[in-house]
Design a protein around this nucleic acid. Structure first.
Length: 347
DNA sequence: AAGGCGGGGTT
DNA sequence: AACCCAGCCTT
């Protein structure tokens, strides 16, 4: 039995029943693939159902406002995925008559679709024999074949893509691609895989050489920066608050937040209160300032640790652009702000 | 080629 | 605390 056939056999006996696997319609397949980029199945699945309910077809998605799409994406992270999803839906409807490109090469040209996602959609929807190479595939192949190349390098990705292409049975690409990813997700897991139960435990090179814990080799380490955010949560005489949209390149682009004072280090009342007092943008004078959480929340992104304090400020006038509690629910927020609104502000 | 981009689960 | 997750885009 070949590696590929064993893998497919394993898959047929062990696969999970996932909702995007029971179709060849490119729309739900595309949707699932974008949602699952750098995201676990368990985290992404509820979002998949919500999007499909709200936007049953690419036409529905194209007609939505970006704010509506971002709101539905709220909490999933990497928000450029949502913005690109929306733009690509509009492109498909307006420029391609609502028909998805029917090949790997065509899919690859769409915004938000890279090599992995193009191969996934092309194989799952059209049975085009193109191999997927994701984190699972790197892990499975590096271990089974004992490949010690650094997967952070572009050269290595080409190496693995070529190997996967050789292994791919041309008559059942969808099955093989699903199988190798599922095997990586369920059996050949990153840490402490149970190799004693593995169907490949007599042929896996990494197991024979004692390299399972070392593979795949990945050199790239990301460094974390620290930032200090002070969110000014105002209440005016109408009980309204103030929001702003993030329009600078960087985290949370196009999402909403409370007025922000960013400092170079963690600051206390003596430093922040005068800055709030002198902020003319409220158009009303400040009655009181209260530090909601004197110990800052540390909100950890993959590459930034945000030290966040919320400051409750009462105004004696009415905001021009005040937002009511009811309106607040429609804005897309970073999850840390959403949690503040739900857990602190609403109570 | 390198770095930015979320949030959460696992070890 | 470190690592990873059905990666992609910009520089």
């Amino acid at each position: 039995m070949t590696f590929s056939n064993l893998l497919i056999q394993w898959y047929l006996q062990n696969k999970r029943d996932l909702p995007w696997r029971n179709t060849t319609n490119p729309y739900p397949i595309w949707l699932s693939e974008i949602i699952l980029q750098q995201t676990r199945v368990a985290q992404g699945t509820p979002y998949f159902y919500n999007f499909l309910n709200q936007f049953p077809t690419v036409n529905h998605l194209a007609q939505a406002d970006e704010q509506q799409v971002l709101k539905l994406w709220q909490g999933l992270g990497y928000y450029s995925r949502a913005r690109n999803l929306h733009q690509t839906a509009q492109y498909i409807v307006n420029e391609l008559d609502g028909i998805f490109p029917n090949s790997y090469a065509g899919l690859l040209r769409l915004k938000g679709i890279g090599e992995y996602t193009a191969a996934a959609i092309a194989s799952f929807a059209y049975n085009e024999p193109v191999p997927v190479v994701d984190g699972n595939v790197f892990r499975v192949l590096s271990r089974y074949f004992g490949i010690e190349s650094d997967i952070s390098l572009g050269k290595t990705k080409k190496e693995f893509t070529a190997l996967a292409a050789e292994l791919l049975p041309k008559d059942q690409p969808a099955l093989f691609n699903q199988a190798i990813m599922e095997f990586g997700a369920l059996q050949c897991v990153p840490k402490s895989p149970s190799c004693e139960d593995c169907i490949f435990n007599t042929s896996c090179v990494a197991l024979q050489k004692g390299l399972v814990g070392e593979l795949p080799v990945k050199s790239k380490k990301l460094k974390v920066s620290h930032r200090y955010f002070n969110y000014i949560v105002v209440t005016d005489t109408n009980g309204n608050t103030k929001l702003q949209q993030r329009t600078d390149k960087g985290i949370w682009y196009n999402l909403y937040e409370f007025p922000l004072i960013e400092t170079q280090k963690e600051e206390g009342f003596e430093t922040i209160a005068p800055l709030i007092q002198n902020d003319a943008s409220f158009g009303a004078s400040v009655i009181s300032i209260q530090e909601v959480n004197p110990i800052s929340i540390v909100h950890k992104l993959s590459h930034q640790h945000l030290h966040i304090k919320f400051w409750k400020v009462t105004l004696d006038g009415a905001l021009d652009d005040g937002v009511t509690d009811q309106q607040l629910k429609a804005f897309p927020f970073p999850i840390v702000i959403h949690n503040f609104i739900e857990d602190v502000w609403a109570k």
